[in-house]
Every structure is written in structure tokens, then in C-alpha cells.
Simulated assay, not measured.
Amino acid sequence: MEPHIFDARGIARRFRHAAFFGALGMLESGETMRFYNDHDPLPLLAKVSSLFGPQVVVEYQDKQPGSVVIDFHIT
């Protein structure tokens, strides 16, 4: 199954977290969201961990200055 794409780079910063959590919350078990961002979103990852725990598996696909790609797998 192809991952659902979420490109945070095109969303105003003040709306990014709300949009991200809205999209993540819509995923069903077995689905993946591929997240594109211009920086490593460490506070976002901490919040994902605290809200979802092991239900969401985080896997970096690419991590370079100015370009980060992360897969969020729903278990």
C-alpha cells in the first residue's frame, strides 16, 4: 500500500501541528503517512509518542539539513 503524503513545507507554521494531527488521526491500522518537512520536528515526534505510544511507529526515510522525510506507521 502506498503511503499517504503529508507535505508540511506548504502549510503555514502556525497550522502545521493541527493539520498533521488531524491527518494522522484519520489513518487506520496498517496505513502509513509519509511526512515531508524542512527541519527535524523533534517536539512533534515527542508529542506523537506521548499521545499515541506504540500505536504509531516512526521511521526516518531521509534526514538532511533542510529536508526531512519520516514515515508514520499505524499499528
Rank of each mutant, 00 (worst) to 15 (best):
M1Y: 12
E2S: 10
E2H: 14
P3R: 03
P3Y: 03
P3W: 04
H4V: 12
H4Y: 15
H4W: 14
I5G: 01
I5P: 09
D7K: 12
R9M: 09
R9I: 04
G10Y: 05
G10W: 01
I11W: 05
A12L: 04
A12M: 07
R14F: 10
F15C: 04
F15K: 13
R16G: 00
R16E: 07
H17E: 05
H17T: 10
H17S: 10
A18C: 01
A19H: 04
F20E: 00
F21I: 05
G22F: 08
G22T: 09
G22Y: 08
A23N: 06
A23D: 02
L24Y: 03
G25H: 13
G25Q: 02
G25T: 03
G25P: 03
G25K: 15
M26W: 00
M26V: 05
M26E: 13
L27K: 08
L27E: 05
E28M: 05
E28V: 06
E28N: 15
E28A: 04
E28L: 01
S29H: 06
S29T: 10
G30M: 10
G30L: 07
G30C: 07
E31Y: 02
T32F: 03
T32D: 02
M33W: 13
M33G: 03
M33D: 02
M33A: 03
R34V: 00
R34N: 02
F35S: 01
F35N: 07
F35Y: 15
D38S: 12
H39Q: 13
H39M: 03
P41G: 09
P41M: 11
P43E: 01
L45A: 09
A46V: 09
K47H: 09
K47V: 04
V48W: 02
S49V: 14
S49A: 12
S50C: 15
S50A: 13
L51W: 01
L51V: 14
Q55T: 15
V57E: 09
V58M: 14
V58Y: 08
E59R: 12
Q61W: 02
